[in-house]
């Protein structure tokens, strides 16, 4: 089964991203949205962990990046930006959604 994992909290506020990465298996997708988009930025303390998650595809929600003033150049490599329609597609394409709140 492929899972869409969602993370909506900053990795510096809560350990939801860390928890999620421990459970995201190869072939799954992780969408960072709301304050979770801070986890998608390059050069921060969690960037290595994100880069090390092999076989996992990372996404960040565009509207939430924009709201927080995070331009796409500030994102870590390999993070794909999606909008809400993209969020919906990810939910459809994967077999289930697992929310790490």
């Amino acid at each position: 089964m492929s899972t869409l994992h969602t993370v909506n909290k900053s990795p510096f506020e809560k350990n939801s991203l860390a928890d999620c990465l421990g459970y995201a298996k190869e072939g799954s997708a992780v969408l960072m949205y709301e304050d979770g988009v801070y986890g998608a930025m390059k050069g921060n303390a969690v960037a290595e962990k994100v880069a090390a998650a092999s076989g996992v595809k990372f996404y960040a929600l565009g509207p939430d990046l924009k709201a927080r003033g995070i331009s796409e150049e500030k994102l870590a490599e390999g993070i794909e930006v999606v909008d809400y329609a993209g969020f919906v597609n990810l939910a459809v394409e994967n077999d289930k959604v697992s929310a790490w709140v």
């Binding site: 909506n8 949205y33 709301e34 304050d35 329609a85 969020f87 597609n89 459809v92």
Partner: peptide, 18 residues
């Protein structure tokens, strides 16, 4: 922001015909 996100998701899903 949870309820905002839910609303935007719902709207996008409905717009896509789900």
């Amino acid at each position: 922001q949870a309820t905002d996100s839910a609303y935007q998701f719902a709207k996008a899903a409905l717009d896509a015909g789900h």
